[in-house]
Amino acid sequence: MAENKGIMVYGEIVDGKISSITTELLGCGRKLADELKEDLSCILVGDKLGDAPKQTVAYGADKVYTAEDPLLKEYQTDSYVAVMEKAAKDLSPKIILFGQTSVGRDLAPRLAFRLGASLSMDCMELSIDPGTKLLHQTRSVYGGNARATFTSEIFPQMATVRQKAMSPLAPDESRKGEITPIKVELDPAKIRTKVLETVKEEVVGVKLEDAQAIVAGGRGIGGPDGFKQLEDLAKVLKGAVGASRPPCDNKWVPDTMQIGLTGKIVTPELYIAVGLSGASQHLAGCSGAKNIIAINKDPEANIYKEARFGVVGDWKQILPAFTEKVKELLAG
């Protein structure tokens, strides 16, 4: 077998553009590649890749491999794993990075087991050991209460990376990169799943992932009506409303509003946590926020360990006056 060389990023495309996690992976991959003095490549899989290959070059890739086929229109485990298996075997990268996304969570483990390689999920830090040149993979475990660092001597070394944990490079349109189509040979009979329907939750206003201000409610909000008050505040702040898991489980708000380890990862300037205790699994999704503000009736709540400012008391009595004052300040 060829010697394993280079870093490969699995790129994702959303609405015709490479997704933000892809730019983050390229930023992180670039650093690792420079340290190893090896190439950074990006592989893109889909039915129509359009401009995406060029974008990945601008964000740091030396080489782009494109796998385009009508059968790859939608992500399906069997077809995508087959493409990636062939690419990994033909191109023998030393390291493959994925985003911790709906696709990465599904694709990366299946591929790792097929290749007989090892994989760390949801990494927050990646580095090259100066001595062994092996990849050190640090990920959150125990719901965010702890971190664990893993390594492996089996190639390719694989990792999925938490969204917003790494910084992208500023895009440079003048960067040069080599774009190489790879041959896709898929047998439709070997795809054992079929996507019957994709149902997307309509988002009105700012998307949670993009919001610079988030008002998040927890079990203490008590029901869907309470969330209307959070919406009022979010509107004033031109932000979005999020939630801990119980409001989603209780159907007060849609599941897509969940923030945390198994929900969305957000890094706004301002995160106002109302009636949520700050469980480690929730904080995993918001601890990257610049300023966390806590409103909780329990002074011992864990959220105060993460917050910069807080008020202790019943949110129902605090929030209206707070919202009023914020409105006044922002108007003036």
Binding site: F309, V311, G313, F322
Partner: peptide, 16 residues
């Protein structure tokens, strides 16, 4: 964490 205190919860909200 800096806890904002006041005589009433509403005042605390305004102060926050």
């Amino acid at each position: 964490c800096e806890i904002i205190e006041a005589d009433t919860p509403a005042e605390a909200g305004t102060k926050l």
